[in-house]
């Protein structure tokens, strides 16, 4: 009984210590939360015509070192920020009901409702000429679609847009890499086969989180 209490005390002290150290590290970072107004677009091909689906929602956050600024020096950017982004699959729309259904089914939306991205590392490719101006970076992260996670290399541009930090990027993928069989739905026009290659492009807006 005594031992158990001691263990509990130990655990609670450890937890307190951890909480303090975490809060200290939080104090040193700035958090940007996703804000409305983002855009995401997936472009693909088919035997009939090219297709596009678009979405308006990119959630997630970016945690960067407090010294992070989009100034020409950009020293702080080497301190790898923590970035997580997510797009609800059902928020992607083609403008055609049937095609949306086909896409949701192919992307296994019922079990994998979101496309997730997590940043692993970020490197400055080209520093901005003006403070807050567009900065080219190379991002390495993991991309999870339909439950399959793959490492992704993607050039991105970060820039200040008013108070918001805007990230734009574009990456080419193969559906089959994520275990997705390119849909070939039987529609009124006959058999349509979609191509394996797709391009995802996005414009992600984040805003400094309210100080708590």
């Amino acid at each position: 009984m005594k031992n158990a209490l001691n263990t509990r005390q130990l655990v609670s002290r450890l937890a307190l210590f951890l909480a303090l150290s975490v809060s200290t590290s939080y104090a040193e970072s700035v958090r940007y939360d996703a804000e409305p107004g983002s855009k995401v677009k997936i472009e693909g091909t088919s035997t009939v015509h090219d297709w596009t689906v678009e979405g308006q929602i990119i959630g997630g956050f970016m945690e960067v070192d407090s010294s992070f600024k989009l100034d020409p020096g950009l020293k702080s950017i080497t301190v790898n920020p923590k970035v997580q982004a997510a797009v609800p699959v059902r928020s992607l729309k083609s403008g055609k009901k049937r095609m949306d259904e086909v896409m949701r089914e192919a992307m296994k939306e019922k079990t994998h409702a979101k496309i997730d991205y997590q940043l692993l590392s970020l490197k400055v490719k080209e520093a901005p000429t003006t403070s807050g101006g567009p900065t080219s970076l190379d991002a390495i992260g993991t991309l999870t679609i339909a439950g399959v996670t793959k490492t992704n290399f993607m050039p991105v541009i970060m820039e200040m847009s008013g108070k918001s930090l805007k990230v734009t990027g574009k990456t080419k993928l193969k559906m089959t890499d994520f275990g997705i069989k390119p849909p070939a739905p039987e529609l009124a026009m006959g058999l349509i086969k979609t191509g394996d290659d797709i391009t995802i492009s996005f414009e992600w807006l984040t805003t400094p989180a309210a100080v708590k």
């Binding site: 996703a34 804000e35 409305p36 308006q56 929602i57 990119i58 959630g59 997510a86 059902r90 928020s91």
Partner: peptide
């Protein structure tokens, strides 16, 4: 999707969406 993603968004932002 909007309200679960943007917890602090106001009614106007929602209406726009």
């Amino acid at each position: 999707d909007f309200t679960s993603t943007f917890v602090n968004a106001d009614t106007k932002a929602l209406a726009d969406h």
